Simulated scan of single mutants.
Amino acid sequence: MKQVITLLALALFFSCQNSAQTKKQKAKVLDAKPIEVPLENGLAKAYFASGCFWCVEAVYESVKGVKESISGYSGGHTKRPTYEASNTGRTGHAEAVEIIYDPKVVSFETLVDVYFASQNPTQVNGQGPDKGSQYRSIIFYQNDEQKAIILKKKEALAKQLDAEIAAEVYPFQKFWIAEDYHQNFERLHPDHPYIRRISIPRLNRFKAKFPKELLKTAH
Rank of each mutant, 00 (worst) to 15 (best):
F48I: 11
Q160M: 07
H77W: 15
F172R: 02
P81T: 05
P171I: 14
E109G: 04
K67H: 14
Y47V: 12
D31N: 15
N184F: 08
L161F: 04
Q3G: 07
L157C: 05
G65K: 10
Q183G: 04
K33G: 03
F108Y: 14
Q3K: 15
D191H: 13
D180P: 08
F53Q: 07
K24F: 11
D31G: 14
K147N: 03
P121E: 02
L39C: 06
K45Q: 15
A148Q: 13
P121N: 02
Y73Q: 05
G65A: 08
V112F: 10
E109L: 04
K67M: 12
L111Q: 01
Q3C: 09
V29Y: 10
F172A: 12
T78Y: 00
F116L: 06
Q123E: 12
Q173E: 09
A32I: 01
Y101Q: 03
G75R: 00
K152W: 12
D113F: 10
C16M: 14
N120E: 02
L7G: 02
V29R: 12
E164D: 15
F13R: 10
G126M: 04
K153F: 09
P201V: 00
Y141N: 06
R136D: 00
F140A: 14
M1T: 12
T217N: 07
F116I: 00
K67P: 00
R80G: 09
V29K: 07
V124W: 02
D130N: 04
I100V: 14
P81A: 07
A9Q: 04
I200F: 15
W176N: 01
S199R: 12
Q146F: 10
Y170F: 12
F210L: 03
Q134P: 09
L7F: 14
P171F: 03
I100R: 13
K45C: 03
F14S: 10
K209M: 07
S133A: 12
K174H: 10
F185Q: 01
K67Q: 14
K209N: 09
N41A: 09
V114F: 01
A49V: 13
K131Q: 12
K64I: 06
V4I: 14
Y47P: 06
K23L: 12
M1E: 15
Y83C: 03
Y73F: 15
D162M: 08
T122Q: 05
A178D: 00
E84S: 13
V106P: 00
V66T: 09
V106H: 03
T6A: 13
K64L: 15
S107W: 06
E109F: 02
G92L: 06
E57Y: 03
D144M: 13
N125G: 06
S118A: 15
L214N: 11
